[in-house]
Design a protein around this nucleic acid. Structure first.
Lengths: 161, 161
DNA sequence: AGGCCTTTATTGAAGGTTCAAGAAGTGGCT
DNA sequence: AGCCACTTCTTGAACCTTCAATAAAGGCCT
């Protein structure tokens, strides 16, 4: 129980609060999207990411990297979204191993339909409650944590396969 | 696409960074615990919560509330942890509907064995990278978000069943 | 060309979570 | 006591994620 092993009181309190906030927030947004768009938050994020690319399309691997998920998870997700008609796969013209995930018109329409409600949920749960400075702070802190995990310096394993 | 419906540039950037950070962090900690303790992060959190109570025991409903999960999820989790011998159920003496979840000696030992590694992972990924002030800020922000979701003021539905 | 290692993407099984439904007990009311 | 609404906890099915294994193609080297 020495200082190397444990957290300070304040770190413990912060960690607990952080876990509570993220657990509740994830649940809340998953429920909101499941109710209004019949998909979990991550699937919505995939459609959203695709919608912001030039031709609403992206290579599978790049999409997985952007979304911070494994290729495997993405494969399953895209299979489901394809079943819904919101996305389709095309062969990559420059790499015959590759697949390009394309947002369909129906997928774009679904996004247009559900985006306002989702954004409102995010604002209500998060940004309406934070000051401009806290928003900036949360951005800074999030970038620090994400950067630290993206290329772990003492990288032991390829941690995202 | 008006101001009521969308986020500012900075809010969008913050939201994206936040989602990246939490997705990567969850994955990272789940992997760390799966590797070292053969359980997901949430299960570890349940054992940890129990270990901090007076007699290492808690009513199911209270445990679910502390962990911010549904009773159903807790039931499944406790069934698994009970199978591992880390937890056991006892009948509640004052309410015959109730169950008390008790951390066993084996469960406590498992926690003692794996806690240092887990805490180290949390420190490396989070607190070692943040200033003392950022830690305070993250705590404040997390508490605001968690409070907002715990008792939604314009409560539409019982959002945690 | 051939051989070998890497990269890309998918698959199926095992395990975790959600949702709706249900069994059982509590507490208040008449 | 009987009734009714609510609380507690569990269950099984559907869905999502993880993990290890696999197929197929690229790229480098000789």
């Amino acid at each position: 129980m020495n200082a190397m092993t444990w957290l300070t009181e304040e770190q413990q309190a912060t960690w607990r609060a952080f876990l509570h906030a993220t657990t509740l927030l994830e649940d809340h947004l998953d429920r909101q999207l499941q109710r209004d768009a019949h998909m979990p938050h991550m699937y919505y994020a995939l459609l959203s990411t695709l919608s912001e690319t030039p031709a609403r399309r992206m290579r599978m691997t790049e999409l997985a990297e952007q979304a911070k998920i494994t290729r495997s998870r993405l494969s399953h997700a895209v299979a489901r979204l394809e079943g819904n008609g919101w996305v389709r796969r095309e062969n990559c013209p420059t790499d015959r191993r590759g697949q390009v995930c394309v947002l369909t018109d129906a997928g774009y329409a679904e996004l247009e339909r559900t985006a306002p409600g989702h954004v409102a949920a995010v604002r209500t749960a998060v940004f309406d409650r934070l000051t401009a400075e806290q928003t900036r702070q949360l951005g800074d802190i999030s970038r620090i944590i994400a950067d630290g995990l993206h290329q772990p310096d003492g990288a032991d394993v390829p941690w995202l396969r």
